[in-house]
Amino acid sequence: MISRRKLAEYAAERLTKGDAASTVMQELAAYLLDTGRSNEAELVVRSIEDALLAKGIALVTVTSARALTSDAKASVEQLVRSEFSQVSDVILREEIDVSVLAGVKVSLAGAQLDTTAKTKLEKLGV
């Protein structure tokens, strides 16, 4: 059985070579399905993100209630760069979720920064 890490490294390698994500994911899906491991999909994706990060590519998801201004995006990018010195590319993906109320949630491989009002309120037990 091919380990998740091996699969992820292979996929990351292909992606950094410029292969379309849809193709790579299609292959991966085929493989996972055939080996009865489709339930590992999320874990594999995380491993791919790890592998990409090791190659200097940070896939960052930013969740906020409203579309971010370009200033805000720049500061998120800045934050990621200061946390991970090896990062050469930051790829931002925005997610709009009104339930977070205010603030942002920045998540990437193995790290998360949550400044959303929702979480703060939850923590306060509200």
Binding site: S22, L32, A41
Partner: peptide, 22 residues
């Protein structure tokens, strides 16, 4: 790294799995 076409791996993978399962 301009040619890197990665946005949402998870969604892509799940969709691909769904497509193939059928």
């Amino acid at each position: 790294m301009a040619e890197l076409q990665v946005k949402e791996l998870s969604g892509e993978l799940q969709a691909a799995i769904a497509g193939l399962s059928q």
